[in-house]
């Protein structure tokens, strides 16, 4: 009610009604996707299993997460920048104290965080790595042709979440409520897009990796 350009009103909107809408869409969309994937399952395999599923499944979860030497030799840039920004993103997301407070507020679980200047440094590195991935995607002849609008969309929303967080923490946008509001807004966009785009891999990646290993294991193939 105070002024038209009201940063505090904007922040309260992103922290209040918009957050509720975003988290509801996220929860609904993600549960729908996961339920669909898990309930559909795979065609029943009537062949007698040659070995166990669980151990090879878990093994691939680990081995496919660590960069293997062959891939690294073929595409060192992809492996290195990909690893750097994924780790950086997770550190900023899960070990920054204000984020831990948010998770604690939502789910009641918490864990120790990292000192802020360290998270700040990691965030800066993440931003540089993310920018490098875009440049690479735009200049690499094969990647360029493979990329779809969705790829650029999820790159943009990921980059913006990290960028606005960095700008807000370092107070590079004034006033601060606007900076924080923008960060929360982009995070909400991220949450809304997550279940309906490739971003779902955050939740399906380990299921997929486990499934691969389990399938190999069942057939007695080395995973």
């Amino acid at each position: 009610m105070t002024t038209i350009a009201d940063p505090m009103g904007f922040l309260l909107f992103t922290k209040g009604p918009l957050f509720n809408i975003a988290i509801a869409i996220f929860a609904l969309g993600l549960a729908a996707r996961l339920a669909e994937i898990l309930l559909l399952g795979r065609r029943p395999n009537f062949a007698e299993p040659r070995a166990g599923e669980w151990l090879p499944g878990l093994r691939t979860v680990v081995t496919r997460t660590l960069p293997d030497p062959g891939t690294f030799k073929r595409a060192p840039f992809n492996v290195l920048t990909g690893l750097i920004w994924h780790v950086g993103f997770l550190v900023a997301l899960l070990l920054f104290i204000p984020h831990i407070e948010l998770i604690k507020g939502l789910f009641g679980v918490s864990w120790p965080g990292l000192p802020n200047p360290f998270v700040d440094l990691v965030t800066a590195v993440t931003l540089v790595a993310l920018a490098a991935t875009l440049v690479h995607r735009l200049t690499h002849p094969v990647k360029k042709r493979l990329s779809t609008i969705e790829d650029y969309l999820i790159w943009a929303v990921t980059f913006l979440v990290v960028l606005t967080g960095y700008l807000a923490y370092n107070r590079l946008i004034n006033p601060y409520p606007l900076a924080l509001g923008l960060h929360i807004l982009t995070a909400e966009l991220f949450l809304i897009l997550l279940p309906f785009t490739k971003l779902t891999h955050i939740f399906t990646v380990f299921i997929a990796r486990w499934y691969n290993g389990a399938s190999f294991g069942r057939r007695g193939v080395q995973s």
């Binding site: 988290i23 549960a31 339920a35």
Partner: peptide
């Protein structure tokens, strides 16, 4: 950093509806 109107039951409801 905590939203002004927190409700974990709302998330659970949305998740159940999604499932």
């Amino acid at each position: 950093s905590v939203p002004t109107d927190l409700s974990s039951s709302r998330i659970l409801t949305a998740g159940a509806a999604g499932a």
